[in-house]
């Protein structure tokens, strides 16, 4: 059993002895600097080095792959991004926990801005088309992507959604991701920005508990502020926590229900829609 990653005999022992594995694993740990250098120097070193450790006598060949595990999704996301840029479509990826009020916020946004922008929505949920139905009722075309057991949208699902939805040039595409603060952080969909929605009925420490998501987002919408008198929620603390993880994050406090703060959110959308080029340099 490997003490570091918890991999068991069953996971690793079929081809090469556990001993070898353990040795290599611990070696790699100590050798951080080595590996870091290695990524600049390309595959040759690792090849020779690991080869001599593992398989001195066997007829085995090590092949350098150096491939990002998410490279395929990233390539498809880049394709989506180019597609959006060519049509000057502002695509936003809305992420949050389940129940933060994303769909209600989208309904309200559509009702208030549909006279100003073409707005289309891609809805991601594991099951049901309830959210897409709500969005259509609010007056925007929507496609529902059911991810089944999947816990996030991927670039390829968005591309398929676009094929059905066919958003018009200079419109706003709102992508409502699966309610999940973990996985959607890693999957680029080709959006211009991730918008994380957090509601005041959740904990102030969520940015610290789910730092990847808050770091990936450009904007945090703090929703349900109309409930602040009824809940123990420290707004200053959540803002501080969000900035610990992401010093540059823009924070807008609002209530999709009462309408408080929505003007700031709409102002942000208007600025983004007006300056497509400025945002091409997204990190």
């Amino acid at each position: 059993m490997c003490a570091t990653c918890g991999c068991s005999d069953g996971a690793v022992s079929r081809v090469v002895g556990e001993q070898t594995h353990d040795h290599e694993h611990s070696h790699d740990h100590g050798g951080h600097t080595h590996d870091h250098e290695h990524s600049h120097d390309h595959g040759g070193h690792t090849h020779d080095h690991e080869h001599s450790h593992d398989h001195e006598q066997s007829a085995r060949k090590t092949i350098s792959l150096e491939q990002g595990v998410l490279a395929k999704n990233d390539a498809l996301a880049a394709k989506n991004r180019a597609w959006f840029a060519g049509r000057e479509i502002l695509a936003l990826n809305l992420v949050s926990s389940p129940g933060s009020g994303k769909t209600t916020l989208l309904e309200r946004t559509i009702r208030d801005l549909k006279g100003e922008f073409g707005i289309a929505v891609i809805e991601g949920d594991q099951e049901t088309s309830n959210d897409a139905d709500r969005i259509r009722a609010a007056g925007a075309p929507a496609v529902q992507v059911n991810t089944g057991t999947g816990c996030h949208l991927e670039a390829e699902m968005v591309a398929r959604g676009l094929g059905v939805l066919k958003p018009v040039a200079r419109s706003v595409l709102l992508i409502e991701n699966v309610g999940n603060l973990v996985c959607p952080a890693m999957f680029d969909l080709g959006e211009r920005a991730k918008i994380v929605v957090l509601s005041v009925t959740e904990g102030e420490d969520k940015p610290l508990k789910y730092p990847h998501m808050f770091r990936a987002a450009q904007v945090m919408l703090l929703n349900k502020i109309d409930l602040l008198p009824h809940v123990d929620f420290n707004v200053a603390a959540v803002i501080e926590n969000a900035r610990l993880v992401n010093p540059g994050i823009e924070i807008i406090q609002l209530s999709a229900r009462s309408g408080a703060g929505l003007d700031k959110w709409y102002g942000w959308i208007r600025r983004q829609a007006a300056s497509p080029a400025a945002l091409a340099v997204e990190s």
Partner: peptide
Amino acid sequence: LAGEELKIKTMELEEA
């Protein structure tokens, strides 16, 4: 500088 890697470095093949 480091810590965000997610990469397949190498594979070893059985040679005929």
